[in-house]
């Protein structure tokens, strides 16, 4: 049996199990409605503008935050990475700030920005920035020293050096950072919507929860999950594209 058929069988199994478990009374249907009801609620929501607006808001927050983090991470990463003393001076600070959990900023964000998109953006940018920065830093460090010496002996200007030498080496790393950052950004976008109340899928889920609409809650979880799958697929495809052009950088089987 080919892989896709097996995978399809796996998905079918999940759907059937979720349908049967509440119907057979193994789990209370008030807590876990059967698949048919979840999909029914989902279909009904899909027909309403509300869901699509929320989806658009979630994507906007996610994308804006990710874009800011990407630009900031790449620029700072290339600058810090290319200047040895800057790198040495900032290393400890980066190592300290990176593991600070972004959710620690939730109360600060609420105080500063209220419940608007900016609050959630702060979380998203903070969390995804480190993913990009750390990858870009290791990418810059990976620049071939021989090529680097060559560039210096030909007296390349710093900008030319970055354009022709540092950036091509760093690009695949930045893409890996982007992939990691994309899923972290989605997590924090939804978190912000749930906890802070920024408009989006997360807030709809929170509303459904407080009104006891269980099937709708599951429907929103499914939407969030599918959104996550889409984000992963796109990010992975992007990463693979750049890795394809740089087989020497990450190629495991390079002779």
């Amino acid at each position: 049996m080919p892989a896709w058929a097996l995978g399809g069988a796996g998905v079918a199994t999940l759907l059937v199990v979720v349908e049967l478990v509440p119907r057979l009374g193994i789990v209370d249907a008030r807590y876990l409605p059967p698949t048919s009801q979840i999909l029914g609620a989902l279909a009904e929501r899909l027909g309403r503008a509300e869901l699509w607006t929320a989806l658009g808001q979630t994507l906007t927050t996610w994308f804006t935050g990710l874009a800011i983090a990407l630009v900031a991470g790449v620029v700072l990463g290339v600058v810090i990475g290319s200047v040895p003393w800057l790198r040495a001076v900032t290393a400890s600070t980066i190592e300290f700030l990176r593991p600070v959990p972004s959710v620690a900023l939730i109360p600060v964000a609420i105080l500063l920005y209220g419940t608007g998109m900016a609050s959630t953006l702060l979380l998203v940018v903070y969390a995804s920035f480190w993913q990009v920065l750390v990858q870009v830093l290791s990418g810059v460090q990976d620049v071939d020293p021989v090529a680097s010496d060559t560039a210096r002996s030909y007296r390349f200007s710093p900008l030319t050096r970055i354009r022709t030498l540092v950036w091509p080496t760093t690009l695949p790393y930045a893409m890996t950072g982007l992939r990691l950052a994309a899923s972290v950004a989605l997590i924090l976008t939804v978190t912000g919507e749930l906890l802070i109340g920024t408009p989006g899928i997360g807030r709809l889920l929170g509303v459904a929860q407080s009104s006891g609409a269980v099937a709708s809650m599951y429907a929103y979880v499914v939407v969030a999950g599918l959104l996550g799958v889409a984000v992963n697929l796109v990010a992975r495809a992007l990463e693979r594209r750049t890795l394809f052009w740089h087989p020497s950088v990450r190629g495991e089987a390079a002779a």
Partner: peptide, 21 residues
């Protein structure tokens, strides 16, 4: 092959949405 699509889906669900559930 059987489990991967389902696992990918669960991995992609932003974990905070599981709190209300």
């Amino acid at each position: 092959a059987y489990a991967e699509p389902v696992l990918e889906f669960f991995r992609a669900i932003p974990p905070p949405v599981m709190v209300p559930i």
